[in-house]
């Protein structure tokens, strides 16, 4: 079972109910350092996306 308090303590704010078993298992397997990095990346992603959810160009991706 995913340790919610550990994720919260490390700064990862996720809706765990929306995740599948594989994703929960992936989170459980991460080290504390990896969780902190993941939390930092998610904050940057949210900041970059802004407040216009659903307005992204459909099918946006990259070729890099």
């Amino acid at each position: 079972m995913t340790d919610r308090s550990r994720l919260a303590r490390l700064g990862l704010d996720l809706d765990l109910e929306a995740l599948g078993d594989d994703q929960l298992a992936a989170l459980d397997s991460l080290t504390d350092e990896e969780i902190r990095v993941l939390a930092r990346i998610r904050r940057k992603l949210d900041d970059a996306a802004g407040d216009v959810e659903g307005h992204s160009l459909e099918g946006g991706g990259v070729v890099w």
Partner: peptide, 18 residues
Amino acid sequence: ALLDLLAPGLARAAGPMW
């Protein structure tokens, strides 16, 4: 599974660039 967890956020973050 970890990569799949990141994918939706990356797609949203790319939107303003496009």
